[in-house]
Nucleic acid binder design. Structure first.
Lengths: 231, 231
DNA sequence: ACGCTCGCGATTATCGATTATGCGGACGCG
DNA sequence: CGCGTCCGCATAATCGATAATCGCGAGCGT
């Protein structure tokens, strides 16, 4: 319970910009500043590591990771193949109730998109994908998918993905159609395209945006320890 | 370092059948029996949890999860799509040196297989896949892949995968060939088949074996605490 | 002057003990 | 005799302190 508290607080600090990439996270210091012992901090840091917020090396501590643009773009191909697999398996396993739920979600999504309700649309989108992943029957796949989600949703919510909200909603149709036909190959193809395309949009958007508002530069950051808070 | 030791040992115990699903893993008891403190055991257990070997609830400890056959089989499709993606990207990014390394690894693997050296063959196999995953240039992909590896290699080492050692070695050829031609689609297809097929073999082997040695039945196992080692 | 080794400061990893929590059974009450 | 409450035990979560390890820089030898 303490661990989760610390973890959430650190995540807030990172997303809120109070901790920037390259900052060191010293266990003892965090423990002191939060008034707790080192142990729960340590566990929180390990959680952050597997959530992808920090990287840590044995005996050398943890630093806030570069979640920069390139890493975000890399997520999409992975999600695409994982969910493509999920869709393939779901095509033969999804029952009538599940299909019905998917249909209603698409309908709801269209309405949300029409009235520009980004939050509702994202929520429906999430539910849509969740149903498919769960219907795949692959427990491990769901595990991986959820872990990836934690690292992405936070960002996507922030980003202006309303860019083509209506279009995104429409993109679900081919997936649903393939599932309805119980065609594994088609379902996989449709899902892969469904996810890869927004990834492309994001990549392009970030590229052009990066030119006007100079986001923290491409930053190798893997080679340079970047000791800022040397104190 | 201690943590990893404990973790690997627990994994061995689970896969080796010395710890069966439903068994409780008591932190203090493990710590005593290994002659270490509670802290590293705790971390090892958390690792096992995210690897899917145990489930744990706050203040109530961890129990060995139903890893059973089905979960292991589920790993292969995931590896297949992930490495398929890696191969696709690697096809256009791999340099001459990388290709050369892959070739020599396949050669080495054939020799190892010929003289029945399972360990060496597995080592080469691992190196082969690692090169491709790294060549994909997708850092996150490599992360996922490595995490999954922990759950698989350990098992493969234990299992009698020498079953078709030479055949496995030979299965690398199509992948290498596609990469040499720098054909992304072919590389992805070849890699997916390369990984899915052994998964099929494993599934069949486990099925037939499961009939003679009655593995614990499908077992919901989530609802029943199944307190065996009540002591 | 340059490279190498050893010691120092900082920080993580581990330990042993303490506290908090949940579960099951014993006890008292209606 | 059945039911609710309290107590004690087993165990996880946390703590404070100690040991191990790393990177860096001073000191030594060449």
């Amino acid at each position: 319970m303490l661990r989760e508290e610390i973890r959430d607080r650190l995540i807030e600090d990172i997303l809120g910009g109070r901790l920037v990439p390259g900052d060191r996270l010293v266990e003892t210091r965090i423990a002191q500043s939060y008034g707790v012992s080192q142990a729960p901090v340590r566990e929180a840091l390990r959680d952050l590591e597997l959530l992808g917020f920090v990287v840590s090396a044995p005996f050398r501590g943890s630093v806030v990771r570069e979640v920069s643009t390139s890493d975000l773009v890399q997520i999409y191909p992975i999600r695409a193949v994982l969910e493509g697999l999920a869709a393939r398996d779901a095509a033969t396993r999804l029952d009538a109730a599940g299909l019905k739920k998917l249909e209603s979600l698409v309908t709801s999504m269209r309405k949300s998109a029409a009235r520009g309700d980004t939050r509702a649309a994202i929520s429906d989108d999430f539910a849509f994908h969740l149903i498919i992943v769960e219907a795949s029957g692959n427990w491990l796949l769901k595990q991986f998918w959820e872990r990836m989600r934690l690292a992405t949703t936070t960002f996507l919510t922030v980003s202006r993905s309303h860019h083509a909200l209506a279009e995104i909603a429409e993109r679900h149709a081919p997936v649903l159609e393939a599932l309805r036909r119980r065609d594994p190959d088609a379902a996989e193809r449709a899902m892969r395209r469904h996810i890869e395309e927004p990834g492309e949009w994001l990549r392009l958007a970030l590229d052009t945006e990066g030119e006007e508002r100079p986001t923290p530069p491409p930053a190798p950051a893997r080679t340079t320890p970047a000791r800022k808070s040397r104190r």
